[in-house]
Each structure stands twice: as structure tokens, then as C-alpha cells.
């Protein structure tokens, strides 16, 4: 007898950028650097997806300035993604962005078999709307709770506190950790963080590895890979402090 004929499927891995497009992003080439970093990361991300065929890597991007809106609305296979440049202008409706994000992390449309999504919030400033309500709406979604939430702070004006709230509780002790906002101070370090999130993190999130639910580790949804070197490490050489 032939083996049962049922629909088998690899598991979707949703990777969603949340990009600050406020007016300040136009300064000092930040927006240009972000566009370039994302565009340059795509081939590496596609390679990771090719190496992990059990995960179907689908990319989306949400932009927020005066309002939050989808920049890449359809979950797009990374191999097919053509990155269109984001443009800066307006204020920082980060709370609205989180509410929009919450809308797509419901089941449905989220697939019951999906892997924990990867959410990357990138900002250079402070929210100008009701961030708390937006975050609360987002975190009511089980898929948001299960997600790997990362944040990249561009420059020293970024509000590290709200980015930390998005990620979750800060890990104990000091030092660098993907459970803290990643601070990019120039185009090179931004590119490294984007590359890391879109390859190393995607690779880790693609692994079919169940893990034990231990008390006190509720915010480490997958074992995160080591961070790339940055300017904060004196042994690194990633260019000048610009932002």
C-alpha cells in the first residue's frame, strides 16, 4: 500500500522588519544606510533559507513615520524579495506600528505550524504616539510572545528603554546581549547587525529543535547566536562613530 497521501509542508518562518522612517532618519545618511544594509543582507538570507529547506523564510516590512504602513505587505519568499528604498519624513508612530504588527500575528492568518517569527525593530528616536498601548496589543498575541524580538538602535538618540520593552526583560548582568538593544553607531555596524539578524538568527530559528521550558527563561524563544563584533568592543574595527 502506498504511504498515506496527505499534505506535508515545511514550516513558515516569518521575518518582519519594523523600520523607523521618521524625519531624523534622513540625517547623516541613516536611511540610506538602512536601505543598503537590508538590500545587501538579502543574498545571505536567501542562502540560509536554501540551506534550511524545512523552513520557508517569508519577509515583510512595516514602516512607521506619521502613520504606520506596510512597506512589504505580502509575506514574500526571501529569494523573490526586491527591496524598494524606504524614505524618511514625519514623526515616529511606533505604537501604531506595533498594533499593525499585532494584526498579522493572529491565527489566522498565522499558520498553526509556523516557526516562532523573527521581529526586528529598528529606530533612531522616541515614539511620538501611544507606544505602551501598541506594545500591549502586540503582546496579547501568542505569536508575539513566541517571537524572537530584536531591536537595533541607530545612534545615541534612540530610546533604549522602549526598545528594551519591545524585546522583553533585560537579562541579568552587564555586557552585550541580543536580549538588549543593539546599538549601531555607523553604517558598518548597522550592516553587521542586519546581516546577523537575517542570517545567524534566521538560521537558528529555522532549526527543528524543541527545547525544554525552564522557569525564568520565558523570553529566550530560541538559543540566539553570538553577536557580531561592534565598535563597543575595543578590538573591533568597524569604522568611526557617526550617529
Amino acid at each position: 500500500m502506498p504511504f498515506p497521501n496527505v499534505r506535508l509542508s515545511n514550516r513558515p518562518l516569518h521575518f518582519i522588519y519594523l523600520c523607523d522612517c521618521s524625519g531624523s532618519m534622513a540625517a547623516q545618511g541613516k536611511m540610506q544606510a538602512l536601505n543598503q544594509a537590508i538590500r545587501q543582507s538579502l543574498p545571505g538570507m536567501a542562502e540560509v533559507a536554501r540551506e534550511n529547506p524545512e523552513a520557508r523564510v517569508l519577509v515583510r516590512a512595516l514602516r512607521f513615520a506619521d502613520r504606520a504602513d506596510w512597506h512589504v505587505q505580502e509575506p514574500t519568499p526571501v529569494q523573490q524579495l526586491q527591496w524598494r528604498d524606504l524614505e524618511a519624513g514625519g514623526i515616529t508612530a511606533m505604537g501604531e506600528a506595533l498594533e499593525r504588527l499585532a494584526g498579522v500575528l493572529q491565527s489566522p492568518p498565522m499558520e498553526e505550524r509556523a516557526l516562532p517569527p523573527v521581529l526586528v525593530l529598528i529606530s533612531d528616536g522616541q515614539p511620538t504616539d501611544d507606544f505602551e498601548t501598541g506594545l500591549a496589543t502586540l503582546m496579547r498575541q501568542p505569536w508575539a510572545q513566541k517571537a524572537v524580538r530584536l531591536a537595533i538602535a541607530l545612534g545615541h538618540d534612540a530610546d533604549l528603554e522602549v526598545l528594551q520593552q519591545f524585546i522583553g526583560p533585560e537579562p541579568p548582568g552587564g555586557g552585550r546581549s541580543p536580549r538588549r538593544p543593539l546599538q549601531a553607531s555607523n553604517a558598518t555596524s548597522l550592516a553587521r547587525y542586519i546581516q546577523w539578524a537575517s542570517t545567524a538568527v534566521v538560521g537558528a530559528a529555522s532549526m527543528p529543535a524543541s527545547r525544554v521550558q525552564e522557569q525564568g527563561d520565558s523570553n529566550v524563544n530560541i538559543p540566539l547566536p553570538d553577536l557580531p563584533p561592534t565598535l563597543l568592543d575595543p578590538t573591533d574595527d568597524v569604522g568611526p562613530l557617526v550617529w
Binding site: 516557526l115 525544554v212 521550558q213 527563561d217
Partner: peptide, 16 residues
């Protein structure tokens, strides 16, 4: 369900 704070692919285990 391991509760609302249960993380991604987490499961109960003999090692707990």
C-alpha cells in the same frame, strides 16, 4: 499549553 509565557518551541521534559 505551558502558559502564556511559554516560549517558541518549548516543551516539558524529563530533565525538569
Amino acid at each position: 499549553s505551558l502558559g502564556p509565557q511559554a516560549s517558541g518551541e518549548a516543551t516539558a521534559s524529563l530533565c525538569l
